[in-house]
Simulated scan of single mutants.
Amino acid sequence: MPDPGALPFGAGVAFAALIGLVLGSFIATLVLRWPAGRSVLGRSQCDACRRPLGIRDLVPLLSALAVRGRCRQCGAPIDRFHSRVEIASALIGALALALMPGVAGWLWALFGWLLLPLALLDARHFWLPDRLNALLAITGLLLAGPLLDTPLVDRWIGALAGGFALAAVAWAYRLARGGDGMGGGDPKLVAAIGAWLGWQVLPLMLLLASLGGIIWALAMRNEKGDTPLTLRRIPFGVFACTAAWIAVPVWPLLISVR
Rank of each mutant, 00 (worst) to 15 (best):
L121G: 00
V40F: 13
L121C: 05
F15N: 02
W108S: 00
A28I: 06
L204K: 07
I55R: 08
M100L: 15
M1S: 10
G158K: 00
F81E: 01
G5T: 15
A217S: 15
R56S: 13
T139F: 09
D122T: 03
G145D: 12
A240N: 03
P203V: 09
S210K: 04
A168W: 13
I78T: 13
R124Y: 05
W245I: 02
A88Y: 07
A192D: 00
G178I: 14
L99D: 08
L166C: 09
P101A: 12
A247D: 03
M100I: 12
W245V: 01
G145L: 09
T230V: 15
A172D: 06
I87V: 15
L116V: 09
T227H: 05
L253F: 14
G20E: 01
L120D: 01
G10E: 15
L21I: 04
A109S: 08
F15D: 01
R124F: 08
W34L: 11
A167G: 10
A192R: 01
L114G: 00
V13T: 02
G179T: 14
L207F: 14
G20Y: 02
S44R: 07
L65Y: 11
P60Y: 03
I78Q: 09
A98K: 05
S44A: 12
G140S: 10
W245K: 01
A244P: 01
L23Q: 03
L141W: 01
G102Y: 02
L62C: 08
V250M: 15
G212S: 13
S89I: 05
F26C: 05
G20S: 05
R80P: 04
N133V: 07
A119I: 04
L160M: 14
L128H: 02
C49S: 09
A28V: 09
A11R: 09
F164C: 13
L62F: 14
P187Y: 02
A219N: 13
Q73L: 10
L147G: 01
A165D: 07
L189Q: 01
V13M: 04
Q45A: 14
E223R: 11
P187E: 06
R177S: 11
A247F: 04
A98F: 08
R80I: 12
G93R: 02
C241W: 00
T230R: 15
G145N: 09
A6T: 12
I19S: 03
P235Q: 05
A36L: 11
M182H: 15
I78N: 04
L114M: 12
W156Y: 06
D186G: 08
W245G: 00
